[in-house]
C-alpha cells in the first residue's frame, strides 16, 4: 500500500525530463522581459515553435517572486528572472538551471533615492525602505560599500513594492531603494535625489531567461525555438523604423505607460539586441566575478539556505570558469544557443 501511494505521489509531484513536445514559459512585467508578450502576440514564438515541431505556451504571471516559485516547483519549463534570484531561488532550491538567454543588464533601472539629501553618504543612520533580500537590497549593499559604509549603518524596513510610491509620500520615509518604473516615479517627487543607481555597477544586475537544465538537455529544440524567437523579437524592436515604433508602442501599453515612458525605461536598460552583444558579456570574466559578489551577499543574508557552509556552496558555471563547488553546479551560463543564433544556425 505504501509503495503504491508513494508511486502515485511521485507521479503527481515529479516533473519528468523526458522528450516532450509541449512547454510552458512564464514572464513578469519588466522592461527587459515584456518583449515576450510581443513575441506571443505577433505569433513569433508560435512560428519558431512550429519550426521545431513543438508547442510553447507563454504565460504572464503578475507577481514576480511567484513566477520564480512556480518555475522552481516545475510548473514552468523556463522563466524570466535576474541573476541574483536565479541563484537564490531555483539554484539554492536544488533545481539545476541554465541561463539560456542573457537579455540585458540594468543600467540605471535600480536605484536609491534620498529625500532632502543629495549624496549617498548622507544615508548613514537613516531608515531605508526596500524589498528586503531583493536586487534593491543588493544594490544598497553595493552602494554602501562604495562610500565606505556597511548595512549596520542603516536600518532596513521591508516594504512591499506595490506600496513603495504611496509609502514614499509619507513624511517618515526618507530613503528608498527600488526599481523602475517605481524608481522614476519616486525620484520625480519634490526634493528627491537619486544618489546611486545600477549604472554605477554595470553588468551586475543581469536579466535572464532561465530554463530547467534537464529539460533543455532532453529537448534542445526548445532552446533553439526560444532563442530564435527572442532574437527575432529583438530585431523587431531594434532601430527607429516603423515596425520598431509599433512594437515599442505595443509594449509601452502593456507596461502601463506611453512610448516616451517606455523609451526612458529602455534608456536605463542595456538591452542586448543581438546575440553578439549578449555573448560578449556571457563569455567575459566579469560574469564570474559578479556571481561571486552576488553569492557572497546572498550567503551573508542566509539566502543560500542555512545548510550552506559558505558562499561557494552552490557552483555557478560560466563560459570563462566555474565559481564555487564544481560538484554542486546548479546555475549555468550557457552560450551554446546564443552562439547558434549568432552563427545563423537556428
Amino acid at each position: 500500500m505504501k509503495r503504491i501511494s508513494l508511486f502515485l505521489l511521485l507521479l503527481l509531484l515529479s516533473t519528468t525530463a523526458s522528450a516532450r513536445d509541449s512547454f510552458k514559459i512564464c514572464w513578469s512585467i519588466y522592461v527587459g522581459w515584456v518583449p515576450w508578450a510581443y513575441g506571443a502576440d505577433q505569433g513569433i514564438v508560435d512560428k519558431w515553435a512550429d519550426k521545431y515541431d513543438i508547442d510553447i505556451e507563454v504565460v504572464q504571471i503578475n507577481d514576480y517572486i511567484e513566477s520564480i516559485n512556480q518555475y522552481s516547483m516545475g510548473e514552468f519549463d523556463a522563466c524570466t528572472m535576474t541573476n541574483m534570484d536565479a541563484l537564490t531561488i531555483p539554484a539554492a532550491g536544488g533545481v539545476d538551471s541554465t541561463a539560456l538567454i542573457v537579455g540585458d543588464f540594468s543600467n540605471g533601472n535600480d536605484g536609491i533615492v534620498l529625500k532632502g539629501k543629495d549624496s549617498l553618504a548622507d544615508i548613514k543612520g537613516q531608515t531605508v525602505n526596500l524589498v528586503e533580500l531583493s536586487v534593491s537590497h543588493y544594490l544598497l549593499a553595493r552602494g554602501l560599500e562604495s562610500v565606505g559604509l556597511t548595512e549596520r549603518d542603516v536600518e532596513v524596513v521591508n516594504t512591499s513594492d506595490a506600496d513603495m510610491v504611496a509609502v514614499y509620500a509619507t513624511p517618515g520615509v526618507t530613503a528608498v531603494a527600488t526599481w523602475n518604473p517605481l524608481l522614476s516615479e519616486v525620484a520625480s517627487m519634490p526634493d528627491s535625489h537619486r544618489v546611486f543607481d545600477s549604472s554605477q555597477i554595470p553588468g551586475e544586475v543581469i536579466d535572464l531567461l532561465i530554463i530547467n537544465t534537464e529539460t533543455l538537455a532532453a529537448n534542445p529544440a526548445l532552446g533553439k525555438a526560444l532563442t530564435g524567437a527572442w532574437y527575432e523579437i529583438m530585431a523587431h524592436m531594434n532601430g527607429g523604423d516603423e515596425r520598431a515604433t509599433a512594437a515599442k508602442t505595443f509594449l509601452a501599453e502593456l507596461s502601463g505607460t506611453d512610448l516616451a515612458g517606455f523609451e526612458s525605461q529602455l534608456a536605463s536598460t542595456e538591452m542586448f539586441y543581438t546575440p553578439a552583444e549578449a555573448l560578449a558579456l556571457t563569455n567575459s570574466e566579469q560574469v564570474k566575478e559578479t556571481m561571486q559578489t552576488v553569492a557572497e551577499f546572498s550567503h551573508k543574508h542566509g539566502l543560500l539556505g542555512e545548510g550552506a557552509p559558505d558562499a561557494t556552496f552552490i557552483g555557478v558555471e560560466t563560459p570563462a570558469s566555474v565559481y564555487g563547488d564544481s560538484n554542486n553546479i546548479k546555475l549555468r551560463f550557457d552560450p551554446t544557443y546564443m552562439q547558434m543564433a549568432l552563427d545563423g544556425e537556428l
Partner: peptide
C-alpha cells in the same frame, strides 16, 4: 506586516517567501 515592517509573524512569512523557505 507584509507591506512594511521590520519584525512580526506576517513580516517573517513574507520575507522568507522570497527564497521559498
Amino acid at each position: 506586516e507584509a507591506i512594511a515592517a521590520t519584525e512580526g509573524l506576517g513580516y517573517r512569512i513574507f520575507l522568507v517567501r522570497r527564497y521559498m523557505a
